[in-house]
Design a protein around this nucleic acid. Sequence first.
RNA 1: GGAGAGAUGGCUGAGCGGACGAAAGCGCCGGUCUCGAAAACCGGAGUACGGGCAACUGUACCGUGGGUUCGAAUCCCACUCUCUCCGCCA
Length: 432
Amino acid sequence: MIAIEQVRRDPEAVRRAMQARGEPDPVGELLELDAAWRRDRTQADEIRNRRNQVNREIGHARSAGQPPAPEVIEEMRSLGRQVAQLEASAQAGEERLRELLLGLPNLPLAEVPVGSDSDSNRILRQQGQPAELDFPGLPHWELGERLGIIDFQRGAKLSGSRFYTTSGAGARLERALISWMLDLHTAEHGYTELALPAVVRRDVMEGSGNLPKFADNLYHDADDDLWLIPTAEVPITNLYRDEIIPPGRLPLYYVAQTPCFRREKAAAGRDTRGIKRVHQFNKVEMYQFVEPESSAAELERLLGHAEEICRRLGFSWRVLELCTGDMGFAAAKTYDIEVWAAGCREWLEVSSCSNCTDFQARRANIRYRPEPGGRPRLPHTLNGSGLALPRVMIAIIENNQQPDGSVIIPEVLRPYTGFDRITPPQPPAPGG
RNA sequence: GGAGAGAUGGCUGAGCGGACGAAAGCGCCGGUCUCGAAAACCGGAGUACGGGCAACUGUACCGUGGGUUCGAAUCCCACUCUCUCCGCCA
């Protein structure tokens, strides 16, 4: 949520930001609502003040044995009615204002390239070249089935399209990746590991900005009004909801592996083959609560932590700086990391690293106290995948496939997998 | 699932419908004392919003939402959460 104070102070900046985002201009309506509720609020406070004064007088008189005069009571009744009316009006205005603010995306940082869609994203750097195989390579959906490690039919049998199962070396490879990533981030990058609920309450989804606007993409249990998380960002953001973090605690660095559930309604028909876009997947997520002054530098470090995974796995990758129109709702600045997959011959997004500035903190009412006795401030929050498992699996399987149909396991994972190669269950028949 | 108890400030914990933003203790911050610390003593300190250049000032907040009343931390209703016991269960 953006601050109404900022709209008051610099309406032009907000107007420009929303335009860069491709949003309709909300400023006029915001300012009108704001002025109206402040007027109601001030009047209600004044009448209340009067009422409180008379109340005290009644109390004093009463303890001196004097009951209040009927006309005094009558005035109090009248004041009560006025207060109730003004308050109802102020409350309605405040709710509409909040609703409007909740519907607005974060303001992009000044350096974010302006553009309406992914065509305007800027390629910041590229490490390595898109690898070419010197034999006809296979996409992972074929490799996975031939190796007997990914089963799409049975996934669909259990849960429908866009679900899959892994088995044997495939399941082990994913578990190894998860352990290795968590170990790397905790041991070398300073993160604290969290284990978290995968279902959360409605107000938690609202705190993170997924509800009400993005209900379409969420799975939901109606009986208990519980929602399946689309990313660990949701529960982590809400850890400190409605709290004031004591002095000296920031920065807080967290990493968590959770399943992520996405209905992908908006992407119906896209990426239907393989495990590139599925309804349930695992993701290792990094998350930071930091002081506002350091969030810009922290985003660069966070990005580096995600890139380190790519480097050690031997990937070729590139870093994109997203333009204003392509960024997520809560982000003020976002880097995407894409790795090259030689089988489907695509750059796959494996990480999205964002500085959400104070947007989530304000929305979820998370504050911190800079020093003992100091005024509470809003921290900045950052999140980044580190990394999303299915697409990492894709890249490993496709890039490391061998002419004989086997797949070489990257060196760093071998202590975790216990094997250095995945081989087909039987020698592949000639011609497949 | 059944039965019961509870929710007040950073924590513990008082609070006959009117003087209550709320006793007291602990903790915290500042000061006196001390070479320094501890102890003792003195003082300070909640959060949000409105008005004001500011000093300041007004209002709200005792789990949440309603209700009764001139007036609610206090009375009534609903909900949420926590704890204890029983049952069931990985």
